[in-house]
């Protein structure tokens, strides 16, 4: 464990969580999610950088170049790479690089993505990598991921 720092990355569309509020996950804004993440990180003495971007290229670039400063990645890919195979390739290669460095990676979703009637909604598959997956626990998806990352970092 180098600097106890997590990167919590939120993908395209997550700046506005109002559509989740209609689906019964309580009143959620990205600020509320960030605050809850900060509280949980504080319990475990972890630092975090909480980011959101609607720009897929920016997200990939940050995963590739920015990860050096972090010990783990929690990512809500949201709309990321469900359409573009180019973006998928960049994403999966970034995730492969991160997991090869033995940094825990967990994919989180606020809702249960398997209950949605949205086509192309599926976990982002990066074969043969160790990536955790948490979906459908609302704001607690992030909470559970932070707890799991903390446990993993303390074992490494």
């Amino acid at each position: 464990m180098k600097n106890n720092k997590l990167l919590i990355m939120n993908g395209p569309g997550l700046s506005d969580l109002s559509n989740y509020n209609e689906r019964g996950y309580g009143h959620l804004t990205l600020d509320i999610v960030q605050k809850k993440c900060a509280e949980t990180c504080k319990i475990f003495g972890l630092k975090m950088d909480f980011r959101q971007t609607d720009d897929e290229a920016e997200l990939s670039r940050f995963l590739k170049d920015g990860i050096e400063d972090f010990d783990a990645l929690i990512i809500n890919p949201a709309g990321y790479s469900h359409v573009s195979s180019v973006d998928y390739t960049i994403y999966s290669s970034a995730i492969k690089t991160i997991t090869r460095q033995n940094k825990p990676v967990i994919e989180v979703h606020i809702s249960n993505i398997f209950q949605q009637d949205v086509e192309n909604t599926k976990p982002i598959q990066v074969p043969k990598c160790e990536v955790g997956f948490v979906s459908g626990l609302g704001i607690h998806s992030y909470d559970l991921a932070i707890r799991a990352v903390n446990k993993k970092l303390r074992k490494n």
């Binding site: 249960n112 209950q115 997956f133 948490v134 459908g136 799991a148």
Partner: peptide, 12 residues
């Protein structure tokens, strides 16, 4: 997956 509230996987 479609019959439950949530899915947790890959956390050992």
């Amino acid at each position: 997956s479609s019959a439950v509230d949530a899915i947790v996987a890959g956390l050992g």
